[in-house]
Design a protein around this nucleic acid. Sequence first.
RNA 1: GGGCGCGUAGCUCAGUGGGAGAGCACUCGCCUUACAAGCGAGGGGUCGCAGGUUCGAAACCUGCCGCGCCCACCA
Length: 881
Amino acid sequence: MTETQHPQRDAAATLPAQYQPGEVEGRRYEKWVAEGRFRASADSDKPPFTIVIPPPNVTGSLHMGHALDHTEQDMLIRRKRMQGFEALWLPGMDHAGIATQNVVERQLAAEGLSRHDLGREKFVERVWQWKAESGGAILGQMRRLGDSVDWDRERFTMDDGLSRAVQTVFKRLYDDGLIYRAERIINWCPRCLTALSDIEVEHTDDEGELVSIRYSDDVVVATTRAETMLGDTAVAVHPDDERYRHLIGTEVELPLTGRRIPIVGDEHVDPSFGTGMVKVTPAHDPNDFEIGQRHDLPSLTIMNERGVITAPGPFEGLDRFEARPAIVAALREQGRIVAEKRPYVHAVGHCSRCRTTVEPRLSLQWFVNTAPLARAAGDAVRDGRVRIEPADLAKRYFAWVDNMHDWCISRQLWWGHRIPVWYGPEGEVVCVGPDEEPPSGPGWRRDEDVLDTWFSSALWPFSTLGWPDQTPDLAKFYPTSVLVTGYDILFFWVARMMMFGLYAMDGRQPFDVIVLHGMVRDQFGKKMSKSFGNVVDPLDWIDRYGADATRFTLARGANPGADVPVSEDWCQGSRNFCNKLWNATRFALMNGAHVAGELPGPERLSTVDRWILSRLQHVIAEVDEQFEAYEFAKVCDTLYHFAWDDVCDWYVELAKPVLGAGGEAAATTRRVLGHVLDQLLRLLHPVVPFVTDELWTALAGDGADGGVGGNGTLLTAAWPVAEPALLNDAAEAEIAVLQRVVTEIRRFRSDQGLRPGQRVAARLDGLAGAGVAAHEPLIRSLVRLDEAGPDFQASATLAVSGEVSVALDTRGSIDVAAERARLEKDRAAAEKEAAQARAKLDNPAFVGKAPEPVVQKIRERLAVAEADLARIGTALEALPS
RNA sequence: GGGCGCGUAGCUCAGUGGGAGAGCACUCGCCUUACAAGCGAGGGGUCGCAGGUUCGAAACCUGCCGCGCCCACCA
């Protein structure tokens, strides 16, 4: 390409002075999708790289947590795609059992209807209709963020295929005896009218009242749930408790009921708590249930599913929270309340979906026997088949899988996967597989319940790939490569995917690496909450600052496993960074930078070119390491500083005089600048895909060879590979000296209040000794120094470094006091440095025990400090007194 | 009650055995034709406290203080 032909200049002319994300993003995204850039193929020869998206709720909309989660996944996927992997990022949604049913039920309530008015079939139809009309808003929002997901493979947990996977796994677990039905105390939500698993219950410290009730002269028990006494079927004491041993085997009359109940001895009772006597209500308390089992006590249910008292008598029909004070009042009237502790703060469970106080309730439910599954899930991490990043968080994972309770999987809902079990007239129980005919005939009925929504999400990594069929997708893309999610659903989801993945896929793990991030928080580290008013909507930031800025802000704060604080200021900073890239590329285009042809050989490169190319190789290597360690924040930091400090602040500034001068040097610089930007944009593409693709196509042209299957888009351009041959320590050292000289002169100009435009005559001494003599014109040009003329009269001497000093003629008086103060300060610092180094070297213990490289380093440090002192001394002497 | 983690500049955080760092904020000077969403320069920290290990500690150990999170069936 000759100097006069620069088609890029036309491109530059079309670029406005500021990056307008709104103008670029929509069009870029639709182009990517239309060209099928996100599509993965099972037939490909390329090695697979797979991520399945943590399926958002069909009722959900994009919040900052998703934006963070998706940014990390998109960064991984986009980089692997550029590296030549068959990269599949599979999107989809979760049917979100209770959440979705609640949404539709609220809609019905507005019409004055309940789901029972419609009936099961019509209600489920209605939910599907809701999904078609208003569900999945988040999918559109993912496009705004730039998620490079394969839309052709979008899945939903209630799809036919996934439902078949659910039924297959259920049947297998049932046949293996790992699923069973039992009457147990479970967590019951009296509002949602369904059972909940342990982890769907959130405990908070609530205020209550602990009352001590005298059942008889000898028997006093304490409780926070007085209403449950109606269901007491025993009183328990510790069998070794001297005070009460004689009572074991006797009976006591239960107040308000007239029933006589036994006193039993049970190890569970803590003699040191309260009176050491416990009322036993097997139907309404998990501990009491176990005591009841051990002593063969009857379980007396005194409350219905809505928490209303059903025990016959004066309290029948009262809500549990009305019955409580009523019963306490009645007991008080009888003089049976011997003590009240109020307020009494204790942990109370709430429905994670609606906050209603959970009621322990005896009921017949389906459970997964988790012991063998959880052991396998733990072992897969213990033996290294699955890695958790950051590794510290594995402790939390083990704490969970090694102490897992059986999982209650049945839900008394209508929206979800219905339990595939039929009951016959003679008490038969038949579990039906997906390809089997269910039993029919008089008296047969199907189980009414559906499965916990997490049951189907636990199958997500393989049900989405076509399992139970042996599909090409499954063969190509399972196990998935990385799972990216927040540590908050380690238990809900990750551990269960591990259990079911290992089980259903015959011991093959669902993913190789689990990458955990934290929660997005505000700029003060506070949790985002509606009541606190600090919630930020990512779409708002995307509108105002662009998707790239939003992504960069999140990724830049994403330290492994840690919460991610964000603020609008930081997002503006990210927007500014995108704009910086924009303008750097604009500058390059206006000056004819290009990517055509080979890089000039080493003999044609200037030191400045060698320096920036060397820096680039370091950056490529660092970014690769940081990506492999899932250090998203460090990736961003490395590229931010390289782009802004090295490329924009130094290389572009150093290139300006060369480009202005024209000739062969300018031609070389145009090519090197094009190369550096080309590589930089590639490296940045995973985190800021829109602006980089826009700029890269302008720089490389639409017909550019993008490397791996690339034709005019950065998406499939080859990921940079560091070239050791381009590393150049000598050039880096030279430019470091140049930078010190320039910075010191600027420092002087700034301290002395010299106007930036004002030219000053100067004599630069010792550049040759420092090996940077060739850079004198560059230095002079950067800091506007004229040659020393015949009338040159130094009014200040700057001690820079090494042999370099700069004598300046400011053509006027300088602020001697300011310069002296500055030098004194520098001298004090150098003296301190020298003293510290000498103290170490004078210490025989240090010299004897410290490794030689460290000692050598200290010697060098001392030498530098002494040289500094000498130069500062000279400069001080040179100052007019 | 059990477990995990954190305390470094005004704010948010990197740094985990050998010269205290970044972003933002702050101060001063600049519209220097890529960019004022910018440029240049600068100030600012007894690394929570107290012991210990070490030639050497922000980092490793112990204790204390403060903060956070997760798990949990003391009625």
